[in-house]
Design a protein around this nucleic acid. Structure first.
Lengths: 204, 204
DNA sequence: ATATTAAATCATACGCGTATACTATTTTGT
DNA sequence: ACAAAATAGTATACGCGTATGATTTAATAT
């Protein structure tokens, strides 16, 4: 039953205009969320800035959180732009991985607001995150780390040991970010030392 | 200027009754938050269960989040009860650390709701967290890990290398928990493998 | 006794995200 | 031209956390 379009009645918005308006909303939202914080920007406010009634926004996104989710890809993209840039100047595989890790962690630590937007969000449910992490595009970004680890070990990128080591490293880096950002009262060792330590381990 | 108490007017609640009612509220809140989730339990509902007007709760806690913060110590305590119990049966320092790490991570992974309550909370600000992590009692709990690492290396618990290694380990474990719990769509290596990997590294 | 004072408590109200029910718009079939 | 139909958009309302101001309570000074 291929859900055929009805012959009468107002037609749905074209995919183009739908996408266009979603983009418009997302770009305004990005600006506002970054400058004033996710929680502080209300749907009423966002609607006003975009030129829509608050409820009209729901024609384009099912919830406020979904608007945020749309920005994840963009923000993660920015983080990885810095990561890949950092690997360019490296002359050894070890150095490349080290640079990548430092760049990744320092991006999020320097942009705590981005970190909160992506990793620490209010009421982000499993399915929400799944829809974001599940995006091929986003997963693909993390391949930089797999490549770097594989090259460093002159192993195949698909080798099980590379998978374990890289998953471990990514978790480790996330843990450093998460701990240092969210538990600022604790006397942590400084980030670059922890990252260097984490990377060293991957080299066996 | 020692802020002397006025001679007229209704006296403030005694520290005892204040503490008593705070405890009463906290225990009802714990029950409800665990069974129905933090977000789903409204202050109106909590007030009704405790036998107070919603706004009367604010005489005892400045915000809903502060009620939650009061429960952090309790929940973290439960996690560490399991951690210390796990180290009892161990016969080598290596084994003790391994058991401790596995117990810590599995506690949070098995009690995702507790994890969210403590580590992933909506709108937890820096100062909020500081007030919780800053509590001597909570910080002291983490000493199990420092002790275990020190013993394994036959080093002093205060040695800088022990500090770095243990901070790194704690971050690593937090990262494993955080990543596996919040990004369930990603094909992670399973937790115990990652934890074993993390622990092995601390042993040089 | 009673007025005075300060704390405790409560009632009301605000802006939030958004569910729901309504109106407006735009198309096709007659 | 116009009725019917289906989508786009809007107005209203709900429960939320909680700020604010009014009311009640419990003590002392007269």
């Amino acid at each position: 039953m291929p859900e055929q379009t009805p012959t009468r009645g107002r037609p749905t918005l074209s995919q183009d205009t739908l996408a266009e308006r979603r983009d418009e909303i997302a770009s305004v939202a990005l600006r506002l969320f970054l400058s004033e914080g996710f929680a502080s920007v209300s749907m009423r406010r966002l609607g006003k800035e975009v030129g829509l009634t608050p409820m009209a926004l729901y024609r384009y996104y099912p919830s406020k959180l979904d608007i945020l989710a749309r920005l994840w890809g963009y923000i993660i993209g920015k983080a990885f732009d810095r990561v890949t840039a950092a690997t360019q100047g490296a002359d050894t595989p070890e150095d490349a991985l080290s640079q990548a890790a430092q760049a990744y962690v320092s991006y999020w630590c320097e942009n705590k607001d981005h970190y909160h937007l992506v990793f620490m969000n209010p009421g982000v449910t499993d399915t929400d995150v799944r829809s974001f992490v599940g995006e091929e595009e986003t997963i693909a970004r993390y391949d930089v780390f797999f490549q770097a680890v594989a090259k460093m070990r002159s192993a195949d990128r698909m080798a099980p040991s590379v998978k374990i080591a890289t998953d471990g490293l990514i978790c480790h880096l996330h843990g450093i970010m998460h701990s240092l950002i969210t538990m600022q009262g604790y006397p942590w060792t400084q980030a670059d030392t922890l990252v260097a330590d984490a990377v060293e381990r991957v080299g066996r």
